[in-house]
Design a binder for these strands. Structure first.
Lengths: 217, 217
DNA sequence: ATTGTTAGTGAACAGTGTTTACTTTCTGAA
DNA sequence: TTCAGAAAGTAAACACTGTTCACTAACAAT
C-alpha cells in the first residue's frame, strides 16, 4: 500500500473522466440515452470516439454511472425529509411527494434508471448489492417509515412493511413514469401546469398513505 | 362509393400486411422493440427490407400498430370484468388486478406502449383522439367505475373521478412497469413467483381501492 | 537512457432505419 | 386483347450507431 492515494496522473485521469461524465450528463438530461451518442459526445469534448473507451468500457457503463448519481440525488432529497421531526403523517406524505418531484425534474434520468436491461435480469431485492445501491437505500427508508407507521398504530397492524413498501413504491413509480413519459401529466389542460401537478402529486401521495391507514373507532 | 369494399388485390395486400405484423409480433413479444429489426423481420418472411416500407411507412408505425392491438387486448379483458354484476368492491379490485395481469403477460408490449416518444408529446387526455384510443377507453372505464363508487357512497364524496382515475391509473401503471422491467418483481426470493405475484397484485389493488374508500361511522 | 505502460487516434466491422433508382408484375380501361 | 399506369419487390447506397484493432506519441519508473 503506497501512501499517495492519488498520483498526478491519476488525478488528471479522474478529471477527464469527470469531464466526459459532465458533458454526457447535459446531453442525457436533454435527450435521454438514445440521444446520447459516443461520437457526438466525443466531438463535444474534442476527443476521438475511441478515446471514450479508455475511460468507460461501454456506453452502458457510462450511462449507469449517470443513473446511479441521479438516484443518489433522489435519496439525498428524500433523506432530508425523512429525518425531519415533523408529525408522522405529514412527513410520510412529504417523502413520497419529494420522490416524485425529483423524478419529474429529470424525467430522462428517471425513466432510464428503470428501463435498463441490466436491472431487469434479477429480482429487485435479491440483486447482488441491492441493499447497498442507492435504490436499495431509498427502499429501506420507505420500509422503515412504514414500519414506524405500523408500530405507532397509524397504519393497520396486519401490514407487512416490506410488502407494503413495494406496493407504495410501485404507486409512486407509476406517477413518476407517467410524468417522465408524458411531461404534462396529469394536467388537464396546458397552462399553470406546475400548480396542477403539485396539487396532483399531493393528492396521489395522500391516496397512497390512506390505503395503509388504520381506522379506529 | 364503390360496392366492392375489398378487391382481390386489396385482400392480398391486407394478408401480407397481416403476415408482417404477425411475424413482428412474435419477435416483439420475445425481444421488445430494440430486438425487432427490419432486416431480421424481412428475412423471416422472405422479403427484402425495403419491401416492408411498401406496407408501413416506418418501424415506429409498425410497432405502434402492435401496441394498439395490445391495448385492445387489455381493454377487452378489463371490460369483461367491468361489465359483470358482482358487488362493486369486488368488481373494482378485479378490474385493477386484470389490468396488471394482462400487462405482466406481455411486458415488452406494455413497456413499449408507454415508452414511445410519440405518446410523450402531449397531455394524456388532451391528445387528439385520446377519447377514441384504446388507452382512452380504458381510462373511461376506470373513471366511470370510480364515479359509481362515489355515487353509491363507497368512496369519499369529495373525490373527483377524473382526478382519482389518473391517480389510480398511475398506481397500477407503476406495478405493471415494475413487473415489465423486473420480471420477478415483487417476489422476495425466487420460487413460486407466480403465486407470490398473484397475492401481491391483489394486495396492491386492495391498497389502491382503500385509498378512496369512505369510512362512515 | 530504456523499457513498459498509458493516452489518444483513424480506420474498419457489424449493425441499425431509411431512401432511391430500377425492374417486374399485375390491373383496369380503351 | 392490348397497352398505359400503378403497384410490388429489390439491390445498393446513405447516414447513422456502438465497438474494436492496430498503431503512434507521450509519459513514468527502473
Amino acid at each position: 500500500m503506497t501512501v499517495a492515494t492519488s498520483s498526478p496522473a491519476e488525478r488528471r485521469r479522474n478529471k477527464i473522466r469527470a469531464r466526459i461524465l459532465s458533458a454526457a450528463e447535459s446531453v442525457f438530461a436533454r435527450e435521454g440515452a438514445e440521444g446520447l451518442s459516443i461520437r457526438r459526445l466525443a466531438e463535444n469534448i474534442d476527443y476521438s470516439p475511441a478515446a471514450i473507451y479508455k475511460y468507460f468500457s461501454s456506453k452502458d457503463e457510462l450511462v449507469d454511472e449517470l443513473k446511479e448519481t441521479f438516484f443518489e440525488l433522489i435519496l439525498e432529497n428524500v433523506h432530508l425529509i425523512a429525518d425531519r421531526s415533523t408529525p408522522f403523517a405529514e412527513r410520510a406524505r412529504a417523502c413520497l411527494a419529494t420522490y416524485i418531484r425529483v423524478a419529474a425534474d429529470k424525467p430522462h434520468h428517471y425513466a432510464a434508471a428503470f428501463a435498463g436491461e441490466s436491472v431487469a435480469t434479477g429480482p429487485v431485492d435479491t440483486e447482488p448489492g441491492f441493499e447497498e445501491s442507492k435504490k436499495g437505500q431509498a427502499f429501506n427508508v420507505l420500509r422503515n417509515m412504514i414500519a414506524e407507521g405500523v408500530e405507532t398504530g397509524a397504519f393497520r397492524a396486519e401490514i407487512d412493511p416490506s410488502l407494503a413498501a413495494k406496493s407504495v413504491w410501485a404507486s409512486m413509480h407509476g406517477l413518476a413514469m407517467m410524468i417522465a413519459h408524458i411531461p404534462s401529466y396529469p394536467a388537464l389542460k396546458p397552462g399553470q401546469p406546475s400548480m396542477a401537478r403539485e396539487a396532483f402529486i399531493e393528492f396521489h401521495a395522500d391516496q397512497v398513505i390512506r390505503g395503509m391507514e388504520a381506522h379506529h373507532g
